[in-house]
């Protein structure tokens, strides 16, 4: 019951056949296939990264390099209270939105993992938010969350709730941003874990047909453990994507009220564009890279340790 087979099962179309030794032998052709892509990416990443190091050591104004400032920009990372608050906001965003997306997405997948009419339609519908242009969704959000009788509040008030200050209150503005992310990305968790569940053997799926207690047991002791590697991977991908959040914040709240919804990506963007401080923005970029790299390494090594490495 090691993880690897399970991870692949959901999506494997045909039984895997390993290339024979001949394929694995030294063959210069392989570089012909691999290198263009690798070199191309390096050209666009390593070179800018190296250049970013240089930038982070200089002062900038209006896109023109100024004095050499040594590690000054990196020192500012340590003392910039605004940056620290924005990092906290970003973490709040990532943790809340990804947690809800995982729980809801996986629950829905478990619920709909059965033969039923209209499942295809549901799946099709679920792909729509994934590709909906985020900047446009942000502006749409302003009208959806309009406090004086917009549709969301109208609905809440119909149910007997009171008017929610979605975009004017620091707390609720965070919730609004998180809700938009949940709207957009829960379908991803749902679709992928549904694909995963469908790959599990039929016997297991039918476990859901047996009655209450046994169903829970099969869920907790069989299905979830089998799904675990896949779920960890989804979690990893979502967390990393969530860290990059930018578009919806720009158009829905512009980081406000105050800086309640200011996330790190937008802060770096503001530093770079509005304060014309490319050097410090580059330093912030490296900090963000460090954080994401740590997060990635922790989660990835956990996945590899527990479930074996996918090749």
């Amino acid at each position: 019951m090691r993880g690897e087979a399970t991870v692949e099962a959901p999506v494997r179309a045909a039984p895997r056949s390993e290339p024979s030794a001949r394929w694995r032998a030294r063959d210069r052709a392989k570089w012909f296939f691999l290198l263009p892509g690798v070199v191309w990416i390096l050209l666009f990443t390593i070179f800018p990264l190296l250049y970013a190091i240089r930038m982070s050591l200089h002062a900038y104004r209006f896109g023109i390099e100024g004095a050499f400032v040594g590690l000054g920009n990196f020192q500012r990372l340590l003392t910039d209270a605004v940056l620290h608050e924005d990092l906290v906001t970003t973490f709040q965003f990532v943790i809340s939105s990804v947690a809800v997306e995982m729980v809801v997405g996986v629950s829905l997948a478990l619920l709909f993992n059965r033969e039923m009419r209209g499942r295809g339609l549901l799946r099709t519908l679920a792909t729509l938010p994934l590709f909906a242009t985020p900047v446009a969704i942000g502006y749409l959000g302003i009208t959806l969350f309009y406090e004086e009788g917009g549709p969301v509040n109208a609905f809440i008030q119909t149910l007997g709730g009171s008017q929610v200050p979605w975009l004017s209150n620091p707390f609720w503005a965070k919730v609004a941003i998180i809700l938009l992310d949940i709207w957009q990305w829960t379908p991803f968790v749902f679709l992928v874990s549904l694909a995963g569940l469908q790959g599990l053997s039929q016997d297991l799926t039918e476990a859901s047909e047996v009655d209450g207690a046994a169903w829970w047991q099969s869920l907790v002791f069989i299905i979830l453990p089998l799904m675990a590697p896949l779920l960890w991977l989804i979690l990893l991908l979502r967390a990393i994507e969530a860290f990059k959040v930018f578009d919806t914040v720009v158009t829905l709240t512009a980081g406000g009220p105050g800086r309640a919804t200011e996330v790190i990506s937008r802060y770096t963007y503001i530093t770079m564009r509005k304060f014309s401080d490319y050097g410090y923005a580059a330093a912030q970029g490296f900090l963000l890279l460090l954080i994401v790299a740590i997060l990635f390494t922790l989660l990835w090594s956990r996945i590899k340790h527990n479930y074996g490495a996918p090749r």
């Binding site: 930018f246 770096t268 923005a281 580059a282 912030q284 970029g285 890279l289």
Partner: peptide
Amino acid sequence: IMPPVIFAPP
């Protein structure tokens, strides 16, 4: 996983 914002300045 690299956030695009890292690349923006350079």
